[in-house]
Simulated scan of single mutants.
Amino acid sequence: MSAFTVGSILMGTTRPQEMREWYCRVLAPGHTGEGPIDLGGMLLVIDQRDDVAPVNLEPGRMILNFHVEDIDAVAEHMREAGVNWTVPVEDRAMGRFGTFADPDGNLLQIIQFAPDAHAAIA
């Protein structure tokens, strides 16, 4: 059996319109229309839910990572979009990482791996 491909993520929230606007502004500024938001081939579906807390009480449980080629340019866009950084972009052994939170407190990261990082992982 081959590995599965992530096609979409369903995000439950008590404030779907605010979350949708945030995700479009920060991660998909060219996105228009309703429906799923395309995040580089993975679709984000934001859904109104009454069975979740207004803020994620355990944000480190799952972190959504975005691999980027120019982390400084991406970080500048995010600063201009008003991102709440939990860990500003920093150098680590495998490359450069920055961690931020969405309005519900879910954690996301941008990562620019060092050129030899993938070889080290393998």
Rank of each mutant, 00 (worst) to 15 (best):
I63K: 10
D50L: 13
I37A: 04
D47E: 13
L57I: 13
L44G: 01
D50M: 14
V45C: 05
D50E: 15
P54H: 08
L64N: 04
V45E: 02
R61W: 13
N56M: 14
P36I: 04
P54A: 01
L39P: 10
Q48P: 02
M62N: 13
G40Y: 11
L64Q: 00
D47F: 04
T32W: 04
D51G: 06
V55A: 08
G41I: 10
D51H: 01
D51C: 01
I46H: 05
P36C: 01
M42F: 11
P29S: 02
P29C: 00
M42W: 12
M62L: 15
R49A: 07
D51K: 10
H31F: 02
D51Y: 00
Q48D: 14
D51F: 05
V45K: 10
G35S: 05
G30D: 15
D47I: 06
G60F: 03
H31R: 08
I37H: 06
I37C: 07
V52W: 07
A53Y: 00
E58Y: 12
L64G: 04
D50R: 13
D38H: 09
G30L: 08
H31A: 14
D50F: 12
A53I: 05
G40N: 03
G35V: 00
A53C: 07
G35M: 11
G60M: 12
G35F: 05
N56D: 15
G60L: 10
D47R: 12
N56C: 15
P29R: 03
H31P: 01
G41P: 05
N65R: 12
I63A: 08
G30Q: 06
L43P: 03
P29E: 04
N56I: 14
T32E: 12
I37V: 00
L39G: 01
H31C: 00
T32Q: 03
L57Y: 08
G40D: 05
N65F: 11
E58G: 00
I63R: 14
N65E: 12
V52M: 11
A53T: 10
V45G: 09
I46C: 15
R61I: 13
I63Q: 12
Q48V: 10
G33C: 11
P36A: 15
P54M: 10
V55F: 14
L43I: 00
L39Q: 01
D47N: 12
R61H: 14
T32S: 10
N65W: 02
D50Q: 14
D51L: 11
P54T: 07
A53K: 11
R49G: 02
V55K: 14
V55S: 07
P59W: 08
N56V: 15
L44C: 06
G30Y: 09
P36H: 07
M62G: 06
I37F: 00
R61N: 14
H31M: 05
P29Q: 03
G35N: 11
P59T: 12
E58W: 07
M42T: 15
P29V: 07
R49N: 05
A53S: 11
G41A: 07
P54L: 00
L44R: 00
D50Y: 03
V45M: 09
I63P: 07
